[in-house]
Simulated assay, not measured.
Amino acid sequence: MDTPKSQKLEIIIPAFRGHSQNFMMVLDRISEEDALKRIEGRTNHIVWMVGNFLDMRYAMGNVLGIEEKFEFKEYFSEGKALDENFKYPTLKQLKDSFHKISPLVYQKLLEVSDEDLDKDFPMGMNIEFFPENVLNFVGMCIGREDYLCGQVGLMRRILGYEGMKYDFDENMKY
């Protein structure tokens, strides 16, 4: 396993890589058509969930100094609600964005210093026990990714796909 410069990220590094693996495995064999289905008109569809996952990856990268912009941000930023009037990107387009940003964010996570992680990062939460800094924002992004992978996993089963297989790709280094 790669060793981060900051010991504060020793738990984040394996979580990030695990989420990258989960992202690919949970989407395995999901059709483009099924990725746009909603349950009883009440759920988000998989494309929205995947886009929100990517919005987290790009946001994490941006707070760490990466200037890459998520090309589909207008559909997903800040947990924007699903809008059935939008023509959302395809799963393939979103997977391509995932493979573009993920290695960059992973490298930044390995390189970031404690000093940079401790920098203030106002989120407007105003919760006494939650310092608003870069480290906690990264942690929030990791938590959101975990949640979204679980949501996609549930949708996968509801749509009649078999459960996610844990066939890790040892060659994916991010």
Score class of each variant (00 low, 15 high):
residue 1 M to C: 08
residue 4 P to L: 09
residue 4 P to Y: 06
residue 5 K to H: 11
residue 7 Q to K: 15
residue 10 E to H: 12
residue 14 P to G: 02
residue 15 A to G: 02
residue 16 F to K: 01
residue 17 R to N: 15
residue 18 G to I: 07
residue 20 S to L: 13
residue 21 Q to P: 00
residue 23 F to A: 06
residue 27 L to C: 04
residue 28 D to W: 04
residue 31 S to A: 05
residue 33 E to I: 08
residue 34 D to K: 02
residue 37 K to F: 11
residue 40 E to Y: 12
residue 42 R to H: 11
residue 44 N to I: 11
residue 44 N to R: 13
residue 46 I to R: 00
residue 48 W to V: 11
residue 49 M to D: 15
residue 50 V to L: 01
residue 54 L to K: 02
residue 58 Y to F: 14
residue 59 A to M: 10
residue 62 N to I: 02
residue 63 V to M: 08
residue 64 L to I: 07
residue 64 L to K: 01
residue 65 G to S: 05
residue 72 F to R: 01
residue 76 F to L: 01
residue 76 F to W: 02
residue 79 G to E: 10
residue 81 A to L: 13
residue 83 D to I: 01
residue 86 F to W: 11
residue 88 Y to W: 03
residue 89 P to G: 05
residue 90 T to C: 00
residue 91 L to M: 01
residue 92 K to C: 00
residue 92 K to T: 07
residue 93 Q to G: 03
residue 94 L to Y: 00
residue 99 H to N: 12
residue 101 I to F: 05
residue 111 E to G: 00
residue 113 S to V: 05
residue 121 F to A: 09
residue 124 G to W: 04
residue 125 M to N: 05
residue 125 M to A: 07
residue 131 P to I: 07
residue 134 V to E: 08
residue 135 L to A: 06
residue 136 N to G: 05
residue 137 F to H: 09
residue 137 F to Y: 15
residue 137 F to V: 03
residue 138 V to P: 08
residue 139 G to D: 09
residue 139 G to K: 12
residue 139 G to A: 08
residue 144 R to E: 15
residue 145 E to R: 06
residue 147 Y to I: 14
residue 151 Q to V: 12
residue 154 L to S: 10
residue 158 I to S: 09
residue 158 I to M: 13
residue 161 Y to L: 06
residue 166 Y to G: 07
residue 168 F to I: 15
residue 170 E to I: 15
residue 171 N to K: 13
residue 172 M to T: 14
